[in-house]
Design a binder for these strands. Structure first.
Length: 644
RNA sequence: GGGCCCGUAGCCGAGUGGAUAAGGCGCCGGCCUUCGGAGCCGGAGAGCGGGGGUUCAAAUCCCCCCGGGCCCGCCA
């Protein structure tokens, strides 16, 4: 058995069934258990008497006390006593037996403790990050990466076969724009972090282009004496001028060269569109240049994400999908359905009709009043759109796995729904069902939004760098005697942990306003706080010269019992977190465990505990805390240093 | 106009039907003769945006309203 709490609940269930039998109550009902508000009231409780009461026309209190006295706790080793409290039935565990069961299970399973395996393991694909390859990973994308990485780790620990994919969106106009800028610069090699460098080129081209356009429009408006228009354009101009200023400061040489080169360009937008079309057709020169630039950017992604331990199994290029003919095939198949038509030369999918015919709104719980917008599959000029290519990508994915989780921003909800509808239209309702849009909201900067087009973002690199630096200062101050390499290593674990925890500990559906203080918080309710607790536990264990035989029955104090209960809950927490895809539940659990441990630590000596049996039992407890903290952090992708 | 998401103390934020609504920051007051003070103990501070409803039981479910965000592109 690997779930101590479930074992205790099993005993409670057995007793309860016996009690119901002896009272000749045979109402069919599911025996559900929960946790009483405090340990004084027991470890396990059930509210079935409330449900039973209305069926039997009795009062819950009466029923509960009758039922409780009909239970025979003496037949169970794990359950010590049962009592009825205001309609609830509460079960008290035998302290010694429950502690022994819990702690010995943890110690025995060690790195596997808590990670209950799924009954039916599946092949699961997690697609995450998939940032456009035209700028750096910023703290907004990083929320995606960190969530996706934690989800993948959780699913793996649950026993699923997980593959982690990155979708390289290289077909969009933005990548063509960056490549165009790169050509204007004479195809140079990157300077500094390559993804940031690409982002600077892209944003510079964009901003310079916009300024030029606005200046032209300003002249026109002035000639026409359209004064309202003039002031409107002026406002926009100052907006772009500010962005231009920022970009120029970042790399004056690069910016000025682009500014100069763009002066001579007749029609930059036309050139960008041509490059984009050439690339979609797979023309060699376009292919060579765009791929080259994209590779630079991906190299930067791999560096920035790899530094914090985030890796991918596969990088799938959107362009490959197009060139392979898979996208055309999808389009042809869709054209054979009754749901597509041409409108103004574009091929359109009637999503509403698909949903109606296949009853998708009922199936997916969509508000019937919501009219699903049509989806343009092919433009009038014959080129495809992002979502169209995504349909082909989904089919490709399901040739490989049973289930797909796409970590994608919430703002793409409509597109993701249309994608599933298109899959259903193709006859793959099952695939549509097993494809999950794991949505999260954006990270905003205080006051303003991050913007790749303006080159305005807080990069993951700078956040990580600052966090590690700060952690290093702390480590150096606290443990000056450690070898330099170890201090560095610890500072990385702590700094990376702080950043990850800051993004994992909030509900993905809430917007996060980026705040340096939050990310660099090393106090309670942070990864460093949890890591610190882990290091403290390790420190005690290091100092223990021998391990006296534990007497589990001596772990009677509330703080000890709370810890044991929490430790015993970890398998539940893990399982529920995976089912709900909620890394945050694990983060919050780890923090709670660390919190309780520190409280215990302050008032309960371990090494000097008397008698020996208590010292032995507390050592087991400390060891179990250590294991669970480490396991909980590791499934989130956070390392636990043994000293810091 | 329609749809979706969010709204919990001064601030940040757990908590999706159950018994006293976590925790953190900030504020006030304590704790370095015991294993690491990135710590611990105590105090003040919310009845969960507002109003109805369902239920033995609602921050959690339903309806209406208010505030904020997002989407409704031949962008991605």
């Amino acid at each position: 058995m690997s779930n101590p709490l479930e074992e205790l609940r099993g005993e409670c269930r057995r007793l309860l069934e016996g009690g119901l039998r002896s009272l000749s109550i045979s109402e069919p009902l599911e025996l559900v258990f929960s946790k009483p508000p405090s340990l004084e009231m027991g470890e396990v409780s059930t509210s079935i008497c409330f449900r039973l009461a209305s069926k039997l026309h009795r009062s819950p209190r009466e029923l509960a006390s009758e039922l409780a006295s009909a239970l025979d706790a003496s037949s169970s080793q794990l359950v010590e006593s049962v009592e009825a409290v205001g309609g609830y039935i509460n079960f008290h565990a035998d302290i010694g037996e429950f502690s022994r069961l819990t702690l010995e299970t943890v110690l025995k399973l060690d790195e596997e403790y808590g990670f209950l395996k799924a009954e039916r393991p599946e092949r699961v694909m997690v697609e995450h990050t998939s940032a456009n390859p035209n700028g750096p990973i910023h703290i907004g994308n990083a929320r995606n990466s960190i969530l996706g990485d934690a989800l993948a780790r959780m699913l793996k620990r649950r026993g699923h076969r997980v593959v982690i994919h990155f979708y390289v969106d290289d077909m969009g106009r933005q990548v063509a724009m960056a490549t165009y800028g790169w050509r204007l610069l004479g195809r140079p090699e990157p300077k500094g972090p390559p993804d940031l460098w690409v982002g600077t080129i892209y944003a510079s081209v964009n901003v310079i282009k916009e300024v030029k356009r606005l200046k032209r429009e300003l002249e026109e408006a002035k000639t026409l004496k359209a004064y309202a228009r003039v002031s409107e354009i002026n406002a926009q101009l100052s907006h772009y001028a500010a962005a231009a200023q920022e970009l120029r400061e970042r790399d004056p040489q690069l910016f000025d060269r682009l500014l100069e080169a763009l002066e001579d360009e007749e029609d930059p937008d036309g050139a960008i569109s041509r490059l984009n079309a050439e690339y979609e057709r797979g023309e060699p020169e376009a292919k060579r240049d765009v791929r080259r630039l994209v590779e630079y950017c991906l190299k930067g992604f791999k560096e920035a994400l790899g530094e914090i331990g985030i890796h991918f199994d596969s990088w799938d290029y959107e362009s490959d999908l197009v060139w392979s003919g898979a996208v055309d095939e999808v389009i042809n198949r869709l054209r054979r359905t009754p749901y597509t038509r041409f409108e103004d030369g574009a091929l359109v999918l009637d999503c509403e009709a698909v949903a109606r015919d296949l009853k998708l709104k009922e199936r997916w719980g969509i508000n019937p009043r919501y009219e699903i917008p049509e989806l343009v599959l092919v433009r009038a000029d014959g080129t495809t759109l992002y979502t169209t290519r995504d349909i082909a990508y989904s089919l490709w994915k399901f040739e490989r796995v049973d289930r797909v989780i796409n970590v994608i921003g919430y703002e793409q909800s409509t597109a993701q729904l249309q994608l599933r509808i298109a899959l259903a239209a193709l006859g793959h309702v099952d695939i549509a069902d097993r494809q999950r849009h794991y949505a999260y909201k954006f990270v905003t900067l205080p006051g303003l939004k991050m913007s790749g087009r303006l080159g305005r973002y807080v990069t993951l690199r700078e956040v990580v760098e600052k966090a590690v630096e700060l952690a290093y200062r702390e480590v150096d101050a606290r443990s000056p005697g450690l070898p330099e390499g170890e201090k560095r290593r610890i500072a990385e674990m702590v700094g990376h942990g702080a950043v990850k925890y800051a993004l994992l500990s909030v509900d993905p559906m809430k917007t996060v306003v980026f705040d340096w203080d939050r990310v660099l918080d090393f106090e309670r309710n942070s990864a460093p706080f949890i890591q610190y607790s882990h290091a403290r536990a390790c420190s005690i264990l290091r100092k223990a010269e021998d391990r006296p035989e534990p007497d589990y029955g001596l772990l009677r104090d509330v703080k000890e019992r709370e810890l044991i209960y929490l430790i015993a809950s970890f398998p539940d927490v893990f399982q529920e977190a995976v089912e709900a895809l909620s890394p945050q539940a694990i983060a919050s659990y780890a923090n709670q465990l660390a919190d309780k441990f520190n409280s215990f630590y302050a008032s309960h000596p371990v090494l000097k505990a008397e008698p020996e049996g208590l010292a032995g039992a507390r050592l087991m407890l400390v060891d179990a805390v250590r294991i669970v903290l480490r396991n909980a952090l590791s499934v989130l992708g956070i390392e636990a240093p043994e000293r810091m």
